[in-house]
Nucleic acid binder design. Structure first.
Length: 425
DNA sequence: TCTGGGGTCCTAGGACCC
DNA sequence: TCTGGGGTCCTAGGACCC
C-alpha cells in the first residue's frame, strides 16, 4: 500500500561551491581547472570539474598535488570564508522563495520540502529553482528530488552528471529507481563512509540496489541502527525528517594549526586566548552559555612522538563571558603543557551549551551582571567598528600565528572596502 | 618545508546505585 | 562474605557529514 501524502524532498547542492564563488570574479577561469585550499593552504577542499578530470583528489595535501597543479596550470585559491558565507546566504534566501519548509544543511546544501507541488510539475519546478539561482547569483547548482533525504541525495549525485543539473524520482516508477540504484556505488550513499563501504564490500554488497535489499536483522546485528535507517530510506520510507527549525547546538569548537610549530607556553597561551575570544563571541551571538570548557594542544600527527593532550574544566556557573573563559583556558593550558615539544595545533571547545534564557540564576548570579553588560558593549563596538576593535591584552597579535593564505582573492562581497574595483574604458 | 576545521550521533564500557 | 539483576549516567572513541 502506498503511504498517503508521500513527501517530496529536494536537495539543492551548489556545484564545487568554493570554486564557483571564486570564479564569479574570475570569468577567465570558467573553463580552466581551479582548486580552493583549506586553512593554512593545507589541503584541497574544492575542485572544479576540470581539476577532478586531471586527477586532483579531494582532501589531498596541497604540496602533494603540486606536480599536477603545475602540469595542468591549475588556478589555486586560499579559502575566503567571508565570500563563501555571503554567497551562501544569498542562495539560501532565494531558496526560501520556493519553499518555506527548508533545512539549511550546510554552507552549500539545503533540503526543501516540495510536497505542495504536484508530482507532474516537480521537474519543471526544480528546473526553475536551478535557473533562478544561476541567474540571480551566478552559482550553478544541482537538484535531486525524491521521497526521502537519502534518495534525494542519490538523485542529486545523478543530477550532477547531467547537463541540465536536475534529477527527480518523484514521477518515475520503482523500476527506474532500481535501475539507477544498481549503477550507484555503495560508497556514495549518504551515511556510508569509508569503513562501512569496505564492510559492505567485503560482504558482497557491490551496488546500492543490493544494499537496499539487505536483510534487516543481519544489518542490525552486524552494523548500526543508522545504517538500518539508511536502508529504509533507500526503500522510500522516511527515517530522517527535515529539520526546519535550527536546533541549539551542543558544542562550539575553535582551533587552528599553526603556520610553524611552536614550543613556548606563552605562544600557545596567546593562540588559545584568541580562540577563546572567538568561541565566546560565537556563543554569545547565539544567546548560549557553556557548562564545560575543553582545551587541547597537539603536535603534528605526521611526525614522531605524537603528543595530544586535553584538559576539561567544568564551569561552576555556566557562562559566555570572555574574561572567565579565558581565565579557565589559561589554567587548563598550564596543567597540560609540557616543555620540549613542537606543538602544531591548539584549540578550545565549549560544551554543554544551553540558552542563556533557560538558565536559572542562583545566589551568585548577580555578581556576573556587570560582566554581561561589559560583554554586550564590547560585542556592539566590534560589530560596528570591525572584529578585534576591542580585545584583551593577552590576545596581542603575533605574526607567527598568522595563517598561510598566499592565494587569497581577498574579495568580500559583504564589506564594501573589499569589493572588487571595475575600471571602465 | 608543506597534511583543515567544525559539527553530530552511536556504542561500548565503567562507575555507581538500588 | 558472596551473589544477581537492572537501571542511569558519563566518557572516550569511532564513524559519519560538509
Amino acid at each position: 500500500m502506498q503511504p498517503i501524502n508521500k513527501r517530496i524532498i529536494a536537495l539543492v547542492d551548489c556545484n564545487s561551491f568554493y570554486v564557483s564563488c571564486e570564479r564569479l570574479f574570475r570569468p577567465d577561469l570558467a573553463k580552466r581547472p581551479v582548486v580552493v585550499l583549506s586553512n593554512n593552504d593545507g589541503c584541497i577542499i574544492s575542485r572544479s570539474t576540470e581539476a577532478k578530470q586531471v586527477g586532483i583528489k579531494m582532501g589531498e595535501p596541497y604540496f602533494k598535488a603540486k606536480p599536477l597543479i603545475n602540469k595542468y596550470k591549475v588556478a589555486v585559491f586560499s579559502s575566503n570564508y567571508e565570500l563563501y558565507g555571503d554567497l551562501s546566504r544569498r542562495v539560501m534566501k532565494i531558496l526560501k522563495n520556493f519553499s518555506s519548509d527548508i533545512e539549511f544543511y550546510s554552507i552549500d546544501e539545503a533540503f526543501l520540502d516540495l510536497t505542495h507541488i504536484t508530482m507532474e510539475s516537480v521537474e519543471d519546478y526544480i528546473s526553475k529553482i536551478r535557473k533562478t539561482i544561476l541567474q540571480w547569483t551566478g552559482i550553478p547548482v544541482s537538484i535531486g528530488a525524491a521521497n526521502t533525504k537519502t534518495l534525494a541525495k542519490v538523485a542529486n549525485h545523478i543530477a550532477k552528471k547531467k547537463k541540465m543539473g536536475i534529477e527527480e524520482f518523484i514521477s518515475k516508477d520503482q523500476n527506474y529507481i532500481d535501475k539507477e540504484l544498481k549503477e550507484f556505488p555503495v560508497a556514495e550513499v549518504w551515511g556510508i563512509g569509508r569503513q562501512l563501504s569496505a564492510f559492505f564490500h567485503n560482504n558482497h554488497f557491490h551496488n546500492t540496489y543490493q544494499l537496499k535489499n539487505a536483510d534487516n536483522y543481519w544489518v542490525r546485528k552486524n552494523s548500526s541502527v543508522v545504517v538500518l535507517k539508511t536502508i529504509h530510506e533507500l526503500q522510500g520510507t522516511c527515517c530522517f525528517p527535515l529539520n526546519c527549525t535550527p536546533t541549539v547546538r551542543k558544542n562550539c569548537c575553535v582551533s587552528r594549526s599553526f603556520g610553524t610549530s611552536i614550543t613556548d607556553m606563552y605562544d600557545l597561551q596567546e593562540a588559545l586566548v584568541n580562540h577563546c575570544i572567538t568561541a565566546a563571541e560565537r556563543i554569545r551571538s547565539e544567546g548560549l552559555i557553556a557548562k564545560t570548557i575543553y582545551v587541547f594542544i597537539k603536535t603534528s600527527r605526521f611526525k614522531k612522538n605524537y603528543l595530544s593532550r586535553v584538559e576539561k574544566i567544568d564551569i561552576p556557573m555556566p557562562t559566555n563571558n570572555t574574561l572567565e573563559l579565558v581565565d579557565l583556558a589559561i589554567k587548563a593550558l598550564e596543567r597540560i603543557y609540557s616543555k620540549g615539544h613542537y606543538y602544531s595545533k591548539a584549540g578550545v571547545l565549549l560544551s554543554g551549551l544551553q540558552p542563556r534564557a533557560d538558565y536559572t540564576n542562583n545566589l551568585f548570579s548577580d555578581l556576573n551582571r556587570n560582566l554581561d553588560h561589559l560583554m554586550n558593549i564590547i560585542d556592539q563596538t566590534n560589530n560596528k567598528f570591525g572584529r578585534g576593535s576591542i580585545t584583551l591584552a593577552a590576545a596581542r597579535h603575533n605574526n607567527q600565528f598568522k595563517l598561510r593564505r598566499q592565494h587569497s582573492s581577498k574579495i568580500d562581497t559583504s564589506f564594501i572596502q573589499r569589493a572588487p574595483v571595475v575600471k571602465a574604458g
